[in-house]
């Protein structure tokens, strides 16, 4: 999943004795492979992950890890395992989170997974911290990359940082590395114009976080000179969401949780509007049920505050040109409104 493969790979190599197969990067080939064997109107992440799974199995993996969420995401693994078996591959798909509960140690023991007991907790803490630092850095990049004097300077530092992260030895080492690259990042020259246009990015988590699934929308917006704010990242989903949702339900016109990230997105829309953002882009994979339910309410909130919203629904049929046209039209409109 995007750059998160760095901390995940780090964690797995440090806590497991099994050999780890690094998944290939998502290409058009992956997507084609995944959609070929998927049911027609399943949501897009299913197709992407299935494609990656087939590639990984061909690279020699026989246990595949899958996560679960508050929608049909939690049920992916069973069908994916069946599809892979019907294709003649022998492998198991292991779901780490199902029905909102983490997999128990007893159940994990049934699989041929060997866990290193030494340094287990330490690696876990380092990974958590690494994700936290990455998310913090990405937040900074999204806000400032649009003003870089030299094109590509931010991405270069980020790439270097990820490589350095994958080689850290301990918590102190990680902290030192982070500080070093943070300094490097913040000292990059910026050219800040007078009129700053800020865009909020909300939507379904997979499409938001996987650059291959959203046509690198953040980079695109930054290249137009727009600041981008995005709430959803792994730190938010795993460590902050539970606490924050309780806050969202107080004094808000939505009475109940609406499944997955629907409520979060409606609340974030309100927050973005109140903070004076110029536009909001809602992006999701096709047929994402919880987000479809949230869309009318997002529209309502944005209308009340007179902030334009662009709804994008991505799947493998989305043509790059059509997508670019819509984005350009929306961005032109934002610029005109600013004047």
């Amino acid at each position: 999943m995007g750059s998160y493969s760095v901390p995940i790979y780090y964690l797995l190599t440090h806590i497991l004795e099994n050999e780890i197969v690094k998944p290939r990067e998502i290409t058009s080939n992956t997507i084609e492979l995944g959609s070929k064997y998927s049911p027609d109107f399943v949501c897009t992440p299913f197709k992407y992950t299935l494609g990656t799974m087939i590639e990984s199995v061909e690279d020699g993996a026989n246990i595949l890890l899958q996560m679960g969420g508050g929608c049909r995401y939690g049920y992916y693994h069973e069908l994916q395992e069946k599809i892979l078996k019907d294709l003649g591959y022998s492998c198991t798909v292991l779901n780490l989170v199902s029905g909102g509960k983490r997999i128990s140690y007893q159940e994990l023991k049934k699989y041929p997974i060997k866990i290193k007991k030494r340094h287990f907790l330490k690696s876990l803490i380092i990974t958590k911290k690494m994700v936290f630092y990455m998310d913090k850095m990405d937040d900074y990049i999204r806000m400032n990359r649009c003003y870089e004097s030299e094109v590509g300077s931010f991405d270069k530092v980020r790439k270097e940082m990820l490589i350095a992260f994958s080689k850290v030895k301990g918590l102190r080492d990680l902290k030192k590395t982070y500080r070093k690259y943070k300094k490097k990042m913040t000292s990059l020259p910026l050219q800040i114009p007078e009129k700053r246009i800020r865009v909020g990015l909300i939507g379904e988590l997979y499409t938001l976080m996987e650059p291959a699934a959203n046509e690198e929308i953040e980079k695109l917006l930054n290249s137009y000179g727009f600041e981008v704010k995005r709430y959803t990242n792994v730190t938010y989903l795993l460590f902050q969401k539970k606490r924050k949702v309780r806050k969202y339900l107080k004094n808000f016109f939505v009475k109940y949780r609406m499944g997955a990230d629907a409520l979060d997105n409606i609340y974030h829309t309100k927050e973005l509007c109140e903070e004076g953002y110029d536009g909001i882009i809602h992006i999701k994979s096709s047929f994402c049920t919880p987000e479809i339910g949230a869309m009318p309410l997002i529209e309502k909130v944005a209308e009340e505050h007179d902030v334009p919203v662009l709804f994008l629904s991505m799947d493998m049929h989305t043509s790059k040109v059509g997508f670019l046209t819509r984005m350009e039209a929306f961005c032109d409109m934002l610029e005109m409104r600013k004047e």
Binding site: G99, Y256, M258, G293, P296, L297
Partner: peptide, 26 residues
Amino acid sequence: PRIDRFDDTNQTCTNFLSFYDLAKHY
């Protein structure tokens, strides 16, 4: 109604969770 689940292994589709808020909106 708004129906979330009957128990942890008997949940509903996320549409069932949004009945109320959508109806109130429309």
